[in-house]
Nucleic acid binder design. Structure first.
Lengths: 135, 135
DNA sequence: AATAAACCTTACCGTTACGGGAAGGTCAAG
DNA sequence: CTTGACCTTCCCGTAACGGTAAGGTTTATT
């Protein structure tokens, strides 16, 4: 299979045709060449790029990070330290988000535990939300 | 202090004037009454509502959840079970997000650990992103 | 009085990473 | 020759706001 239309690429990559066009529009994918009828024509290499993008997105890298990773991937003269520092920054962001969510979870768990959850209106959850923290 | 303009309310609540207007526009806050000059006029009760909203948002509840929580708060005949089940659903979502992030973090940590991070181009991070998982 | 600083108003664009749907051209099969 | 099943571009919607523009009001100062 040498070349394919967007539908085929979508199926083989698991990335929707819509998203492939979007990636092209923002420069994650190079502008695809076109057939006489205007259809985009893709090659095996596009599939590899798309899979790279998909893996990176799956690890939570932003599209702009992926852009950077792609350029490093293509740059044979890169230093792995650049990749690693990008990854480190991302790990720190992920960890920060985890910490925020865990803090929420703790408060929520505590509140839910203290709430009877019956037919009565008394509710420590609402009480807590209504409290100002002042006086 | 009986009434105040939006700037004062913003300062006292810690919610920006912009966000207060936004909350009004989506129905989180009732339409504020207006002075002769068209300025919004707020009262102490609006401050209490805003603080409630802020606490709930701080626990990660969506604006639409907050809308629901506000109506339960105001409903003297509510059953605390309703509040509790809303909170439980939210806790589960938070936990799911934590799990997703933790999974990412594990993979990222492992990759970063294996990457030398020096001036050489060899990089397990890029290698992993480029691998398809097939064959 | 005039003006500047500090308020307030509405309205519209940008953010992130797409999905949905409209309106219309193209291609393979029955 | 007419369905489908493709493909195209274009524009709207998402969540929860922030930024900025253009302009009216009020208060303070010169």
């Amino acid at each position: 299979m040498r070349t394919m239309n967007i539908g085929k690429l979508a199926k083989r990559s698991g990335v929707s045709a819509k998203t492939i066009r979007y990636y092209e529009s923002i420069g994650l994918l190079p502008p695809a060449s076109r057939a006489a009828n205007g259809y985009r024509v893709f090659e095996e290499n596009d599939l590899r790029t798309l899979r790279f993008i998909q893996q990176a997105r799956g690890l939570g890298f932003s599209v702009s990070d992926v852009l950077h990773l792609l350029s490093l991937w293509r740059d044979q003269g890169r230093a792995s330290s650049e990749v690693k520092s990008l990854a480190r920054r991302h790990i720190e962001e992920v960890e920060a988000r985890i910490r925020d969510l865990e803090a929420m979870r703790e408060v929520l768990r505590d509140l839910a535990e203290r709430c009877h959850g019956d037919e009565h209106p008394e509710c420590p959850i609402l009480d807590q939300l209504a409290s100002t923290g002042e006086e």
